[in-house]
Design a protein around this nucleic acid. Sequence first.
DNA 1: ATGAAAGCGCTAACAC
DNA 2: GTGTTAGCGCTTTCAT
Lengths: 348, 348
Amino acid sequence: MKVTMRDVAKAAGVSPASVSFALRGDPRIKPETAQRIRDIANRMNYSVNATAKSLRSGRTGVIEAAVFQLDRPFYSQLLAGISNAALEHGVQAVAQQISTGKIGHEKSILEKVANQFCDGVILSAGGLSNAEIMELSKGKPVVLLDDQSYQGPFDSVFTPCEDGAEAAVTHLFDMGCQNIGLVGAEFRPFDQALRSMRVVDRRLIGCLRAFERHGLKLAESAVVPLDDWDTDDAYEAVSKTISEGRFTFDGLFCMTDAVAFGVLRALREHGIRVPDDVAVIGFDGVHAGEYVTPSLSTIAVNIDEIARQSVSILCRRINEGRHGAPAMPKHVTVGYEVVVRESSARIS
Amino acid sequence: MKVTMRDVAKAAGVSPASVSFALRGDPRIKPETAQRIRDIANRMNYSVNATAKSLRSGRTGVIEAAVFQLDRPFYSQLLAGISNAALEHGVQAVAQQISTGKIGHEKSILEKVANQFCDGVILSAGGLSNAEIMELSKGKPVVLLDDQSYQGPFDSVFTPCEDGAEAAVTHLFDMGCQNIGLVGAEFRPFDQALRSMRVVDRRLIGCLRAFERHGLKLAESAVVPLDDWDTDDAYEAVSKTISEGRFTFDGLFCMTDAVAFGVLRALREHGIRVPDDVAVIGFDGVHAGEYVTPSLSTIAVNIDEIARQSVSILCRRINEGRHGAPAMPKHVTVGYEVVVRESSARIS
DNA sequence: ATGAAAGCGCTAACAC
DNA sequence: GTGTTAGCGCTTTCAT
C-alpha cells in the first residue's frame, strides 16, 4: 500500500515498464533481469495496487455473487460452490448480501452491486424486472439465478422447480399419501401459474401436474402459505394450522428445506409423528437435512452445478471479445435427485 | 461502464470538475446548476467508475470479511451480521472464502485478501502468525477474529471461549452428569493449554476449570478429538467411539453446534437417548440449534455483537487520521448466554 | 531488450 | 461559482 512500481524501478535501476513486464512474466524481459527485478520487488515487499491496475486494464479479476441472505443454508452452500468454481477459472469471487432485512433497501444496495469492483455479477434477485437489472448492471455481464422472465436477455441458470416439485409430490403419492399439503406455496389456478416465472409459481406448477396425473385437484385448503421461506415462519404457520384444527394432511411438500425444518418441529411439538402420521419432503438438498430428526427427504438440486454453470457462463461472457455480436443469452436448468430419507420413508 | 464524467460535462456544458462536485453535493456548485447536472447524468445513465474514484481518493468504501468457510452456519450468521453492521457505518461489506478445501491454498488466496478492493479486512484466520498477517495486510487495517496471539498488534474480537466452555461443562455437572466427554477438543495438560491462544485450547481451558472446581481431573479418554469441527467428522468419530465400546458418557460438550448436530445423529442411530442417557450441549448458538431434534442446548455467543464490534473497530481504524500516533490495538471479548433446550434438559 | 510517454476516469488544489 | 490542471499507480504501444 506504500511502495509503488516506481520505487521498485528506481531501486532496480530500470523503468517502471520493465518492472511491470518482469512481474507479469512477459517474455520480452531477459530472464535474469526479470528475476533480479522480482527479487527486489519481494525484498521491498511490493505488491501491485489492484485499483490502479484495474483502472488501466479494465479488469478486476473478481466476480461478485449477490444474494438476499447470506445466512440461508441454500445460499451459503451456493456461495461456497461459486467461490471454488471461480478459483478454477482464475478469478476471485466475493459474496454480497443484498437484503438488509428492512424492506425497500434492496434497490439502493443493488445500485452498488454492478457499480463495484467486479467484472460481472451472479445475481439472485427475484423480484427485479429486466429493465431494472439492465439499468443496474451498467453494461456489466450478469448471470441471473432463477430469472423471472421468459427467455430474457440475460444469461440465466435455473433450479429445476417444476420437475423437482412434481417429483416431490409424486413421491408422496407413491408413499400412499391421500391428502397432500403444500407448505410455502401460493394457491392459484394452473393457467395463471403457468404465465408466471416466479419460483413459487414454478414449484406450484410441478405440484399441479402431479395432482393432475393422479386425477386430483389441489384444494385451496391444501396450501399453507408463507410470507417468506423461512424456518421460523413455517414453524408458526404450521403450528397455527394444527391448533386451529385445520391440519388434515398425511403428506407435506415443503417448498424449501428451511421451511421443512420449521415444519418438522411444529409437527413434533404437536405429537404428530413423521413419517408415520405424515410424510414430509423438502426442496433444495441442503446439508442440514441429513442431520435433523427425522432426517429430511428432499429434492436435492445440484447446487454445485448451479455454481459451476453460473461461474463458467459469466466468465465466458466477460471474456467475450468485442469482435462480433455477443453470443445469444444462455438458459440452463440444473439437475436434481429425489433423496428419500426418514421423513418420508413409510414402511407401507 | 461506458459514459464517463467527461461525457456528462460535455453534455452539460461544464467542466468535469463541476460534475464531480455536483454529483457529490459539494456546496460550491450553485444548487440549480448542480440539479441540472444531476439530471443530465441521470438521463445519460451515468455512474461513477468506482475503480477510478478509489484510485484517486485512496478509498473504496468497502470492507471485506474473510472466513475459511462460507457454508458453516456460524460464519454465515456472522457474515450476515457484518453486512448489516457495515451498512450502518455507510460502507459495503463483501465476504470472501479463504479456504478452497484443498489444503495449502490458504496462503495464496490470503495474498489476495488485503490486496483487493477494500479499505480493510475482518479476518478469521486461525493458524496464521502475526508476521504473516502483517505482511499480507499490506498496511491495511485488519481486525482479527479470535486472534491467536497474546495482546497482539492487531485489533481483535474474541469469542468467549474460556468462560463459555466453563459454563457449558458446569451446566452438565449441574444436570447431574458424572462422566462428561468433550467432542472436538484436544487433550493436553492445563499449563500447556494456558500457553496457547488457539480457540481449541481456550475452550479446553474453560473445561478444565470446570472440572477442577468439581475436584475432578479430565481423563484423556474423555475427549473425542476431531480433525475439523465438522458435522460429518463428528458423526463418524462418535459413531466409531460407540461401536468400539468406548462410549461411557452421560454428558457431552461439543466444541461447536455443528459438531453437536453430527453427535446427536450418531447417538440416535445407536439408540442412545438424549437427554435421558446423555445430556448434550454445543457452542455457538446458531439458528439451526432450535430446530434439530432434540433441540440443542448451547453456549449462544452474541454473534451480532462480534459483527458490530469488528465492523466498528475496523471503521474507526480506517478513519483514523494520519495525525498523531495510531490508537492502541483494541481487544474485546463478546458476551454469551447459556441456552438450555431439550438436549440437556434432564428432569432430575 | 528496455525506456519514454500517454492515458484509464476521477478528485482536489488552485486559478479565474 | 466554475474551470484548469496535475496527478493517483499502473499498462501498453511505440521508439530506441
